[in-house]
Simulated scan of single mutants.
Amino acid sequence: MTGVPDIDAFEERAAILEFEGGLSRREAEDRAAQAQGFRDADHFRQVLADYLLTGRLPH
Rank of each mutant, 00 (worst) to 15 (best):
32 A>I: 02
48 L>M: 08
2 T>V: 10
19 F>Q: 13
21 G>M: 15
28 A>Q: 05
5 P>W: 03
51 Y>P: 13
35 A>K: 05
50 D>V: 03
35 A>F: 06
52 L>G: 01
39 R>F: 13
49 A>Y: 09
43 H>I: 01
46 Q>W: 03
50 D>Q: 11
14 A>T: 04
58 P>L: 00
23 L>I: 15
29 E>A: 15
41 A>S: 13
27 E>Y: 10
30 D>F: 01
5 P>N: 13
5 P>C: 05
37 G>W: 06
50 D>S: 09
1 M>D: 09
15 A>C: 09
6 D>M: 04
20 E>S: 08
33 A>C: 03
32 A>G: 03
23 L>P: 08
48 L>S: 05
11 E>C: 12
2 T>W: 02
32 A>Y: 09
54 T>I: 03
42 D>F: 13
46 Q>F: 11
6 D>C: 04
33 A>Q: 01
55 G>I: 02
28 A>C: 05
59 H>D: 08
19 F>C: 15
29 E>S: 11
52 L>C: 03
42 D>A: 11
3 G>W: 00
15 A>Y: 15
55 G>D: 03
7 I>M: 14
30 D>I: 01
49 A>D: 06
7 I>G: 10
34 Q>S: 05
48 L>T: 00
14 A>C: 03
36 Q>M: 15
30 D>W: 00
46 Q>D: 14
11 E>L: 13
27 E>D: 14
18 E>Q: 12
17 L>G: 00
19 F>T: 08
56 R>D: 03
36 Q>H: 06
53 L>P: 14
9 A>N: 14
22 G>H: 03
29 E>M: 09
26 R>M: 07
27 E>L: 06
16 I>A: 11
44 F>T: 01
25 R>C: 12
4 V>I: 14
17 L>I: 04
37 G>V: 02
12 E>M: 15
26 R>Y: 15
33 A>G: 04
